[in-house]
Simulated assay, not measured.
Amino acid sequence: MLFIILLIISFYFIFNLLLIAVWREMKQRHKVFSSEKDTKLTVIIPVRNEERNILRLLQDLNQQNYPVENFEVIIANDGSTDNTENIVLEYQEQAKYSLKILNLLNDASTSPKKRAIQKSIEISSGELLITTDGDCSVSANWLSSIQQLYKSKHAKLISSPVTFTEKRSLWNTIQIIEFASLIGSGACAMYLKKPNMCNGANLAYTREVFEEVNGFSGNENVASGDDEFLMHKIAKKYPEKVFFNPDFDAIVRTESQVDLAHFYQQRRRWASKWKHYDNWQVSALAVFIFLANLSVLMAYCMLDDYFGKGILLLKFSAEFFFLYSVIKFLGYKSKVIYIPIVQIIYPFYVVFFGLLAQGKGYSWKGRRLE
Rank of each mutant, 00 (worst) to 15 (best):
I146S: 01
S325I: 06
E319N: 14
Y191A: 08
Y332Q: 14
S139L: 02
F353S: 04
S217Q: 11
T110A: 12
N199Q: 07
V336I: 15
V22P: 00
I5N: 11
H154V: 10
L182T: 12
A189M: 13
N199A: 07
Q63M: 07
I339G: 02
Y362T: 12
K236M: 04
L355C: 13
V342K: 03
N83C: 03
S80H: 02
I177K: 06
V282G: 08
M231A: 04
E122G: 07
T110G: 10
E228G: 00
G79E: 07
E69C: 03
F164G: 05
Q266V: 15
K96I: 13
L355Y: 13
W270S: 09
Y205H: 13
N86I: 13
N172D: 04
A116L: 02
F15C: 04
L297D: 00
F248Q: 14
L356R: 09
F71W: 00
D135L: 00
E51D: 06
V43F: 01
F210T: 05
P340S: 09
I337T: 10
F322M: 07
Q175E: 03
L323P: 05
A318V: 12
K37V: 06
F248I: 15
S317M: 11
Y362N: 11
S272M: 07
F329I: 03
I20S: 07
E72V: 01
N196A: 10
G308S: 04
F216W: 02
V209P: 00
L285Y: 14
V162E: 09
K167V: 06
L285R: 15
Y205Q: 09
I45P: 00
P67L: 00
M302V: 05
A271E: 11
H276I: 06
D133S: 03
R269D: 08
V88P: 12
D135E: 08
L128N: 03
L7E: 09
L61M: 03
K194D: 05
S185F: 02
V326E: 08
Q175C: 03
V47K: 04
F3Y: 15
Q63N: 07
L18T: 14
E178G: 12
S224Y: 15
D304Q: 10
N196M: 15
V287E: 12
Q358C: 11
N214C: 11
Q148G: 09
Q64H: 00
K194A: 01
L192S: 03
G359A: 12
G310I: 13
L149H: 01
L19G: 04
P246C: 05
S137G: 03
I14C: 10
S10H: 05
M197C: 07
S34F: 13
L260D: 09
F352W: 10
T206Y: 06
K360L: 14
T206P: 01
Q64A: 01
I4F: 15
F348W: 02
A204G: 06
R268Q: 14
Y324G: 04
E51Q: 11
W142R: 04
R268F: 13
L230P: 02
F320S: 08
I337C: 11
I183P: 00
L17K: 09
P239I: 08
T110W: 07
D305P: 05
T131C: 09
S34Y: 13
N16V: 07
G354H: 04
K113T: 07
A140T: 12
R368F: 10
G361R: 01
G366W: 00
F321H: 06
N86D: 14
N49A: 09
F71G: 00
